[in-house]
Design a protein around this nucleic acid. Structure first.
Length: 586
RNA sequence: GCGUUCGUAGCUCAGCUGGAUAGAGCGACGGACUUCGAAUCCGUAGGUCGCAGGUUCGAUUCCUGUCGGACGCACCA
């Protein structure tokens, strides 16, 4: 589809030049990338539309007239065997291309979701996401981050890129020490098993208990700092406790990843990377890229590009958050030389990344231009921002549990329990479908409102709707396999799909490649989510009005079965890209 | 104060590099299950695209200003 569009653009451009020559007009102002192609709003207007206005202006001609002239001289796009892949017609001030429906239906049957072109082929893309703290379990905000990172990596893979997914676990710092201190005071040596808690929730419980401790012991903050100093001095007792609690936290977090269906190719741990970067800063200081204040701290002055001054090393010589990020980026690039590194991090850190990228550029790393901050908005509740202190944080595991139990109730209400193998497992998958689709349908950059009522819905523009259409397609194909209907007696005949209703669905399938390219280029899984809904919706109205197995014409039935297979393949691929489990039945 | 960003139907969101009548879902109202699973489908109602200028043959889309919201501007992460 993408190549078809490109090919037609070239033809239109060639035709324009031809007209310019014969009319003795100047075509200097024309270039091929000026040719805009759009999607006509109605099926009778064809499959590609070229507005003539801008060229008409250059030629000082009536746009409708120009469209007629181009249609007359335009050479049609052909396939390798010489079949015309469409015809161009002038429709008012537009030149519209009508595809050869038979040829393109055949193309979809043959290739399904195997794209003829992958724009990111050969590119190495590293994607960093999730990056949890080890003092508490994941919450709704992490779920958005996780699914964004995983989905984007799958989309980029589909677009041909080689992707490496990385995670940086924030396993050190004062927040960890607070959980550790509270555990020392209140934990009594108990384990998560003793308390019957998932291990990361167990650690999180003690982090919350630190607030209680603070109320009881005014020196609590100071004691936590003391613990951090001991940790940095590698006090054996503290290290032991730290290792134990971190293992609990990380194990629990990984269990949530597994449940969500996301994974990483490589884990980095802050405790191993936080020292990195210091040498870089000192080397930069020698080269006068940075400067030293009287108190000994080291700074970068970025005022010339509208940013502020930024501390890079404390007066006592210790590292900061940004120091570590500088080191980690350098380390990663030498580790796996990427063409692009994408940081999936909330929008509140936009300034941090602008500073980080600029400093790496000043240090002379030419790949600094390949760093990209995929900034995404916060997930807010109707009552406002989630706040740990007010207990309004939506816990990730609890949320999935709730969705799954609701899905199971829905299955029971629809009396589907006997029809499916494992209702509990299907319910879990529906829950994830609902959750992930809900989180991905909004553009990443926008803050989103988490409306419990709406997100718990399984009808309408939702993940389960997409899953349902996949299941319906599978259901039809199962019946076909069993020999129901007359499709088995027919011959696949693509020319039978020339009716508008069939063609709309074929055309939608053709548009998948373009959607993937756009989603990969703009780093917006929401593009695929929108496409998923369009395809599912098209399929839904199509199979209602167009009998697949029971058509009177066996050839038409056989052909429509091929179309259903193509729809199923597309939905399966889309679901994978959106981290929505594909269901054969539900 | 400075910077970034968002502002489209009652609500939650789409709207591709400016283009043919601004689209979904939810909610409201009205229809469709002896016919491939009704988590579905069809129809009706609902929008001065925050506001004001500008560029353009043409602006929801680009520019400027303005109003409103969010976030950021730590020797925290």
């Amino acid at each position: 589809m993408t190549e078809l569009k490109t090919a037609w653009k070239q033809r239109v451009f060639a035709a324009l030049r031809k007209i310019a020559q014969s009319g003795n007009l100047s075509a200097d102002a024309l270039s091929e990338d000026m040719i805009v192609a759009e999607f006509p709003p109605k099926p009778e207007l064809g499959d590609i539309g070229f507005p003539m206005f801008s060229y008409a202006k250059i030629f000082r001609m009536n746009p409708a007239m120009l469209a007629v002239q181009i249609a007359a001289v335009l050479e049609p796009v052909q396939s390798e065997d010489g079949t015309a892949l469409g015809v161009a017609k002038a429709v008012g001030p537009y030149l519209n291309v009508y595809f050869n429906r038979e040829a393109l239906s055949r193309h979809i049957f043959r290739n399904r979701t195997n794209f003829s072109q992958t724009p990111l082929a050969g590119r190495k893309v590293m994607i960093e996401f999730s990056c949890p703290n080890t003092n508490k379990p994941l919450h709704l905000g992490h779920l958005r981050n996780n699914v964004l990172g995983e989905s984007l990596s799958r989309i980029m893979k589909t677009a041909g890129a080689e992707v490496q997914k990385v995670n940086l676990i924030n396993d050190r710092g004062i927040h960890i020490c607070k959980s550790m201190l509270a555990y020392q005071v209140y934990g009594g040596g108990r384990t998560p098993e003793d308390e019957g808690l998932k291990s990361d929730h167990f650690v999180g419980k003690y982090y919350v208990l630190f607030n209680t401790l603070k109320a009881e012991d005014p020196a609590a903050e100071e004691k936590a700092q003391e613990l951090l100093r001991k940790w940095e001095a590698e006090d054996p007792e503290v290290m032991n406790l730290w290792k134990k609690m971190n293992a609990w936290a990380v194990d629990g977090i990984k269990a949530t990843y597994a449940r969500q269906g996301i994974s990483f190719d490589r884990y980095y741990y802050e405790s191993q990377t936080y020292m990195k970067g210091k040498e870089e800063i000192l080397a930069g200081l020698e080269r006068n890229i940075f400067y030293r204040e009287e108190d000994g701290s080291i700074w970068a002055n970025l005022e010339d590009i509208g940013l502020d001054r930024k501390v890079l090393l404390r007066k006592d010589g210790t590292s900061l958050y940004i120091t570590q990020d500088i080191g980690t980026a350098i380390y990663r690039h030498s580790d796996w030389p990427f063409d692009q590194l994408i940081y999936v991090v909330a929008s509140e850190q936009q300034y941090h990344f602008r500073v980080l990228f600029e400093i790496l550029k000043r240090l002379g790393y030419e790949w600094a231009k390949d760093l990209y901050h995929l900034s995404y908005g916060l997930v807010n509740l109707p009552s406002g921002r989630m706040k740990t202190r007010e207990g309004t944080v939506v816990d990730a595991d609890d949320l999935i549990d709730e969705l799954a139990s609701l899905a199971q109730k829905e299955i029971a209400e629809r009396e589907r329990e006997s029809a499916i193998d494992d209702a509990a497992q299907v319910a879990e998958k529906i829950a994830l479908g609902a959750l992930h689709y809900y989180l991905l349908q909004t553009s990443p950059i926008k803050d989103m409102l988490y409306n419990p009522e709406q997100s718990l819905s399984f009808t309408g523009n939702t993940g389960p709707y997409i899953q349902y259409m996949g299941a319906r397609a599978c259901s039809i194909l199962r019946k076909f396999e069993k020999g129901e209907g007359n499709a088995g007696k027919g011959m696949v005949t693509p020319s039978k799909l020339s009716a508008d209703a069939d063609w709309m669905l074929v055309r939608r399938l053709l548009a998948l490649q373009e959607a993937v390219e756009l989603a990969a280029r703009s780093k917006e899984p929401s593009v695929i989510a929108a496409y998923a809904h369009d395809l599912a919706s098209d399929f839904s109205s199509w199979y209602r009005d167009n009998p697949v197995l029971a058509s009177e014409d066996p050839d038409l039935s056989a052909t429509r079965v091929e179309l259903v297979k193509a729809v199923k393949a597309a939905l399966e691929k889309i679901c994978w890209m959106l981290c929505i489990p594909f269901l054969e039945e539900m």
